[in-house]
Amino acid sequence: MSVNDLDEDKAVAEVADRLAERFPSIPRSHVDEVVQSERRSLDGKPIRDYIAVLVEHGAKARLRDEVSADA
């Protein structure tokens, strides 16, 4: 695992933390699943600098939709 991989792992973990705080009604394990699903959807993409931002954007939209559907 390279330093860039470790930086990406840390950034994605921070995304999960922020989203867990933003969506407290959703179990943390589900937030983690959504975040990892979004990350996997970006596997193989050549530019990794923005992965955390893209993961957060996609995961936040999915979680927001889930909260809205439950309301």
Rank of each mutant, 00 (worst) to 15 (best):
M1L: 08
S2C: 08
S2H: 10
S2R: 09
V3A: 13
V3R: 13
V3D: 15
V3Q: 14
V3H: 11
V3G: 13
N4Y: 13
D5M: 01
D5I: 00
L6P: 02
L6M: 13
L6I: 12
D7N: 13
D7T: 10
D7F: 12
D9F: 08
D9P: 02
K10L: 07
A11S: 10
A11Y: 01
V12P: 03
A13R: 14
A13F: 05
E14A: 13
E14W: 12
E14R: 14
A16W: 01
A16N: 02
D17E: 15
D17S: 14
D17I: 10
R18N: 08
A20C: 12
E21T: 11
R22H: 06
R22L: 01
R22Q: 03
R22F: 00
F23K: 12
F23M: 03
P24H: 11
I26M: 02
I26A: 00
I26S: 01
P27G: 13
P27W: 02
P27T: 13
R28H: 13
H30S: 09
H30Q: 08
H30M: 07
V31W: 04
D32I: 12
D32A: 08
E33T: 09
E33P: 00
V34H: 09
V35I: 01
S37V: 07
E38D: 09
R39A: 09
R39K: 12
R39F: 07
R40E: 14
S41C: 12
D43K: 02
D43W: 04
D43L: 06
G44I: 12
G44R: 10
K45W: 15
K45D: 11
K45T: 00
P46M: 15
P46Y: 15
P46D: 15
I47E: 14
I47Y: 15
I47M: 06
R48D: 11
R48S: 07
R48I: 15
D49Y: 15
D49A: 15
Y50C: 04
I51R: 01
I51W: 05
A52F: 14
V53A: 06
V55K: 02
E56G: 02
E56R: 05
H57N: 06
H57F: 10
H57E: 05
H57L: 10
H57C: 02
H57Q: 05
G58D: 08
G58W: 06
K60Q: 11
K60D: 09
K60M: 10
K60R: 15
A61H: 15
R62L: 00
R62F: 00
L63H: 09
L63E: 01
R64G: 11
R64W: 08
R64C: 03
V67M: 09
V67K: 15
S68A: 07
S68L: 03
S68I: 00
S68K: 03
A69M: 07
A69Y: 01
A69I: 03
D70W: 07
D70C: 06
D70P: 01
D70Q: 14
